[in-house]
Design a protein around this nucleic acid. Structure first.
Length: 487
RNA sequence: GCCCUCAUCGUCUAGAGGCCUAGGACGCCAGCCUUUCAAGCUGGAGAUCAGGGGUUCGACUCCCCUUGGGGGCACCA
């Protein structure tokens, strides 16, 4: 039961536009969104664009686009940190004035050699405090020489810093292992550490749900809150999503950005369901949950601690489930853009939507992603099909009996007045008997002749959709191919 | 190297001391259904709960150590 007296729940998703959001980022966004919706709180979007050098064109748009595709609507923002620079500067100044921070004039070169030596001596790399005790005179001199300083936080040299994590419990770091990190860069932009806590404070963020990789920098943030005498939010570090080799997900693991999944024909509702189950579970058996059910049941208590390998095969299964659950019209509508995109150029455009609808109804329970529909369906849209003549012959068949059967089929089908699945069955099933062929062989022959493949939707329905004229044409073409078959 | 952290079937996970001879899902195998392929249904293989010590009448569950994995240690987030 949530107490009415508690501060309102306010969470944020704070990506940096240095790349396109990958599954891990999006899973973090999803958990934040679920948490906010479950508690009837606010979900805030904040763009952490304080790294001018690494900014990627179009990244912000892709982030917004990804969230909207999944239906993760935000209540406030997007706030851009690059437009709030004065706020960070104010806090930095205050920290300086109150003696919690100092200006540092060390050159990148000096820092680099320092680091190398520390590594060589097998010491933990970190700032050595060189500028910590500079006199006012020295500072003025360095300032005059044109060096733009950075501002560093004065990390306590002794003692320890601990904080409570909602998922992992109490976590403690010895301050000696923490170094004087940078708050403000020489270009006047804040680092993540500064901007992050200033904004979380100013935006009244109640809970910080972020990936595990931030755990190590949380003591820095805790120290900052202490120095500023601000109430820190509650922290919950989420387990990470891993690649098949158990390492942090990255480009080299293949498709990792959300938009790639959209292009590969996954449904947003399946992605939401699947992503939610990476690190969270409802119970010992539930796998399929709608967005509303997720909102209803989501809780931090049921988030696990260990990283999860992203299992694409299971996603495919789940996507198939969602695909099959769609209404036929909906399925056709969602499949159309993929057909349009991937069908061979020889297929007539624009696509005949009524025809598409008939085709997709045969494919709905056979596809796991929308992107595989075009390959499953191409023969429906092409005038001529190309295939190996060997596909025509079943096990107990030779070219002669196949020719005989095809000829008989052409004759009977040519006479047909109605052309639907049941009348076709009414013609072809008895014909198999007459020809003394197993349905397996006879229908297999017709399938290969009409579709050019051995695996396709049910024969009669397929033929019905193809139409009488096209079927007869293809049957005749198969008859021509037959002599070429190697026995 | 140092710091933090995690550890149940191949993978995602259930398990909050006795309900566990460890449950579910994906995948895999087999059977059924069947004109092929799927889908569906049924069944099966698959985890000495990383290893070792404790605590306890009793440990997958609590504690310690070891091992292994992951993350962090930037004028990146």
């Amino acid at each position: 039961m949530e107490s009415e007296l508690k501060a309102p729940i306010r969470v944020r998703f704070a990506p940096s536009p240095t790349g396109y959001p990958h599954l891990g980022n999006i899973r973090t966004a999803l958990f934040n969104w679920l948490f906010a919706r479950h508690h009837k709180g606010k979900f805030i979007l904040r763009i952490e664009d304080t790294d001018v050098a690494r900014r990627v064109e179009g990244a912000v748009e892709t982030i917004l686009d990804s969230l909207l595709w999944l239906g993760l609507e935000w209540d406030e923002g997007p706030y851009l940190q690059s437009q709030r620079l004065h706020l960070y500067l104010d806090v930095s100044t205050r920290l300086l004035e109150e003696g919690h921070a100092y200006t540092c004039y060390c050159s990148p070169e000096r820092l680099e050699t320092m680091r190398q030596e520390q590594i060589k001596r097998k010491q933990p790399p970190g700032y050595d405090g060189h500028c910590r005790h500079l006199t006012q005179g020295e500072k003025t001199r360095l300032e005059k020489s044109g060096i733009a300083p950075v501002v560093r936080f004065k990390t306590p040299l002794a003692g320890e810093t601990s904080f409570h994590d909602l998922i992992r419990g109490q976590i403690t770091f010895k301050n000696i292992t923490l170094s004087d990190f940078i708050l403000l860069k020489s270009d006047g932009y804040p680092t993540y550490h500064l901007a992050n806590i200033v904004d979380d404070h100013l935006m009244n963020i109640s809970h910080v749900l972020r990936a595990d990789e931030w755990l190590s920098s949380t003591p820095l943030h805790a120290l900052l809150y202490q120095a500023l005498d601000w109430q820190p939010p509650q922290f919950a570090h989420l387990p990470m999503i891993l690649g098949p080799d158990k390492s942090k997900l990255s480009k080299r693991h293949g498709a990792t950005t959300l938009t790639e999944y959209r292009e590969q024909g996954y449904l947003p509702e399946a992605m939401v369901n699947f992503l939610a189950l990476l690190g969270w579970s409802l119970d010992d058996k539930t796998e399929l949950l709608s967005r509303d059910q997720l909102v209803e049941h989501f809780s931090l208590e049921r988030i696990g601690k260990s990283g999860a390998i992203f299992n694409r095969t299971k996603l495919e299964w789940m996507n198939g489930v969602y695909l099959r659950r769609l209404g036929a019209a909906e399925f056709a509508q969602r499949a159309t853009p993929f057909l349009d995109r991937d069908l061979p150029s020889s297929a007539r455009r624009p696509l005949d939507l009524a025809y598409v609808r008939q085709v997709t109804s045969l494919l709905q329970e056979r596809s796991r992603t929308l992107a595989e529909i075009p390959q499953l369906a191409d023969f429906f849209f092409l005038d001529a099909i190309d295939y190996d003549a060997g596909l025509l012959l079943g096990k107990e068949m030779n070219a002669e009996s196949a020719a005989n059967a095809l000829q008989a089929a052409v004759t009977e089908l040519g006479r047909a007045r109605t052309w639907d699945a049941s009348s076709l069955e009414g013609i072809l099933r008895p014909l198999a008997a007459t020809l003394n062929l197993s349905t397996r062989n006879f229908f297999g022959l017709l399938r290969a002749a009409t579709t050019g493949r051995t695996a396709a939707p049910p024969l009669f329905q397929t033929m019905a959709v193809l139409g009488q004229q096209k079927c007869l044409q293809r049957l005749a073409a198969a008859l021509q191919k037959l002599p070429a078959v190697q026995q």
